[in-house]
């Protein structure tokens, strides 16, 4: 079955991101297809490369990145929600003349159309909200 996942909670502020990560791992284990994971609202903080949790805690942004690389997942961050909250890729940092950028690869910034398209092509959309 084709799934898409929406995450609207920031890591460490709420349990949403961690729950979503575990759910996605189960989906993959059970051989379902993940069409896209979409990060919206405060969920954009899941993509920050600058998160430095203590070593005995899960590094949620890097867990997402590893999972995405391992399974070739499309992990998309809402661009409008992200730039507002200071999550920028190199391109946006250049556009807004910022001295640095912090989007973890392979996260990509894109528009809300990616959420809607995910809803159209997926059998299930599951939201993990804060």
């Amino acid at each position: 079955m084709i799934f898409s996942i929406v995450v609207t909670g920031a890591p460490y502020s709420s349990q949403a991101a961690d729950s979503a990560l575990r759910y996605c791992k189960s989906l993959l284990k059970l051989e379902h297809q993940i069409h896209r994971i979409f990060f919206y609202a405060d969920g954009v903080h899941n993509a920050s490369e600058l998160a430095v949790p203590p070593q005995d805690e899960t590094n949620i942004p890097s867990e997402w990145a590893q999972l995405a690389e391992q399974h070739k997942l499309d992990i998309v961050v809402c661009i409008a929600a992200a730039v507002r909250r200071g999550v920028l890729d190199e391109n946006e940092a250049g556009r807004y003349e910022k001295s640095s950028h912090n989007l973890t690869l392979p996260f990509v910034l894109s528009g809300l159309g990616q959420l809607v398209e995910a809803g159209i092509v997926s059998d299930r959309v599951v939201t993990f909200g804060a």
Binding site: K29, V126, T127
Partner: peptide, 19 residues
């Protein structure tokens, strides 16, 4: 468990999240 959560997500037509 989480596998059960996934299984329920398939068995029902859609998932609505209340948060």
């Amino acid at each position: 468990d989480y596998d059960g959560f996934v299984e329920l997500s398939c068995r029902y037509n859609k998932v609505v999240s209340w948060f």
